[in-house]
Simulated scan of single mutants.
Amino acid sequence: MYRILAAVGTDIERARTQVEYIRNLPDASTNVAVTIVHSYVEEDDANTPVDESLPPEESDAVIEVRSQLEAHDIEVDKQEIYSPVDRGILDAAEDVGAEQIVIAGRKRTPVGKALFGSTTQSVLLRSDIPVVVTGVPE
């Protein structure tokens, strides 16, 4: 079984690009398993403490990804990440033995990247496994 870690944010349209990529992989319904990760700490609030004893609410994007993948008979499980987002994605990928990370791109201005950092860029630069960045819907 080929294990993919799908790092899903809150934007449903970007999440759909991840589903489209995954479901179009060869033999996805029989040979692909997906672990969805979602950070319950906003990227801008990574230093804000989170009460991990409370169950988080799933974002609409996470619900959409899970239901769409299951509708295509793709095995799915989910993990929450609470650490800084990029580190959480990389740690989760290692924990589940992922062979690939699928993350949705986001349009950001150069100033926005300088002010807030880029989770996608950090994951791309630090990952030891392939990272696929799906397109940004127009």
Rank of each mutant, 00 (worst) to 15 (best):
L54F: 07
T17V: 02
S59P: 14
K113H: 14
A93W: 03
V65H: 06
T120P: 01
R106M: 06
D27R: 08
G97F: 13
V102R: 07
P137K: 02
V76Y: 01
E64Y: 12
D91W: 10
S83L: 12
T119F: 04
V34Q: 05
I4H: 01
V131T: 12
G88R: 06
I36H: 01
A15E: 12
E70L: 14
R3S: 03
A15I: 12
V111W: 15
T109S: 14
N31I: 00
T10N: 13
D51K: 09
V65W: 04
I101V: 11
E75W: 06
V85K: 03
L125W: 04
N24T: 06
T17K: 03
I4R: 02
N47C: 07
S53V: 04
T35E: 08
T17F: 01
D44W: 13
H38C: 10
D11R: 02
E138P: 05
M1E: 12
P137L: 05
K113Y: 06
S53H: 00
P130S: 13
R66W: 01
D27C: 04
A71S: 15
D27Q: 06
M1I: 10
P130I: 08
E43L: 11
V34N: 06
I103R: 01
L125V: 05
I22P: 00
Q100N: 10
A98W: 09
E94I: 11
N31W: 05
R23S: 08
D128C: 05
L5E: 11
L5T: 11
S118I: 10
N31F: 02
D45C: 00
E75R: 13
V102G: 04
P110R: 13
Q121L: 10
A71V: 07
R106N: 04
T35Y: 04
S118D: 13
V62Y: 07
P110I: 08
V37N: 00
Q18H: 03
G88P: 09
N31E: 07
T119I: 15
P49E: 10
T10L: 10
V133E: 00
D27F: 02
I74R: 01
E43A: 14
I4D: 01
V65F: 04
F116D: 09
S122M: 13
L115R: 05
T10S: 07
E52K: 13
E75T: 15
S127K: 00
A71I: 05
L25T: 00
G97E: 13
V133P: 01
V41L: 11
Y2L: 15
V50G: 04
R16L: 03
A15F: 09
V85Y: 00
R126A: 15
L90E: 12
E75K: 12
A93G: 12
Y21I: 08
E64M: 14
T10Q: 09
A7E: 05
R23N: 03
L115Y: 02
P84S: 02
E43C: 08
D95C: 03
V131L: 13
D91K: 08
T120Y: 02
D91G: 03
N47Q: 09
A6R: 02
V131D: 12
